[in-house]
């Protein structure tokens, strides 16, 4: 039974791995271009293991940003994982420490999405499913990085192949499905506008400010909607 679930997890994860392969390769080759050695470039994927954080960090390495700026942006970009962590808590808290540490380390957008879908389908959370899908993703992400490092050290500049655009395309493909409600539309629009203006004027911490403003705008509208809905329900009850 466990074997079947592990196989299923592996098969479910593969298409998502394919989608991030160009991205992993970019992390490897761009790492070399930004002045990391091959071990540092691979260590980013082995230890940090977060595509968006890694890519933006490489940009910052290139620009010679400060240590604190790099950590702030890492936190802002990975803050969404707080939500996944809080949501997985109900299933994972009672597991032994080694399970909690491993699943915590392997918790990515992809693993979270797959695990939630599997839990909804079968009615129970399966730790083996989560572990195998998380680990498959980890292994292939590192493999892609390794290929990027090899190609980058042989062929030089991979960004000319359009891999740099792959980052933007992936972000777009991830964001668009979120845009279903007015608050999210407002959130995305605000964040984009703020980022455009702040980047144009070369303001520090543009990412932090834009993200926070977008989140606040979305949240306020969402709160407003919810209140209105509650009022309507209570009116209907009266």
């Amino acid at each position: 039974m466990t074997k079947h679930i592990q196989r299923q997890a592996f098969l479910d994860t593969l298409p998502l791995c394919l989608a991030v392969t160009p991205w992993g390769m970019l992390c490897g080759s761009l790492g070399l271009q930004m002045g990391l050695d091959i071990w540092q470039a691979q260590a980013m994927s082995l230890l940090v293991f977060a595509g968006a954080v890694q890519l933006s960090a490489l940009g910052l390495f290139g620009a010679g940003a400060s240590f604190s700026a790099m950590l702030t942006s890492s936190f802002v970009i990975s803050a969404r994982h707080l939500l996944y962590s809080a949501d997985m808590r109900q299933h994972i808290l009672q597991l032994p420490t080694k399970w909690r540490l491993s699943l915590g380390f392997l918790l990515t957008d992809e693993m979270y999405a797959l695990s939630v879908a599997h839990t909804q389908k079968t009615g129970t959370f399966d730790r083996h499913y989560a572990l195998v899908s998380g680990f498959t993703f980890y292994a292939l992400w590192n493999l892609a990085t390794c290929i990027g490092i090899i190609l980058g050290s042989q062929a030089g500049d991979l960004t000319t192949l359009g891999l740099e655009f792959a980052i933007a395309a992936t972000f777009i493909a991830l964001v668009v499905p979120y845009i279903k409600t007015h608050p999210v539309v407002a959130c995305v629009f605000t964040s984009a506008t703020m980022m455009f203006i702040l980047t144009y004027y070369d303001i520090n911490q543009a990412l932090l400010i834009s993200t926070a403003t977008g989140m606040v705008v979305g949240f306020i509208l969402d709160t407003h909607n919810e209140k209105r809905q509650r009022n309507r329900t209570s009116e209907a009850l009266l």
Binding site: A52, S56, V76, I77, A79, R80, L82, L83, A86, D109, I167, A168, F171, I172, L174, V175, Y178, I179, P183, V184, C187, V188, T190, S191, A192, M194, M195, F196, T199, A206, L207, S210, T211, A212, G214, M215, G218, F219, D222
Partner: peptide
């Protein structure tokens, strides 16, 4: 509030 984190940050990274 945190639900708005992913769309906000991914958009900001794309610009």
């Amino acid at each position: 509030f945190l639900k708005f984190s992913a769309p906000a940050v991914l958009t900001a990274l794309t610009i």
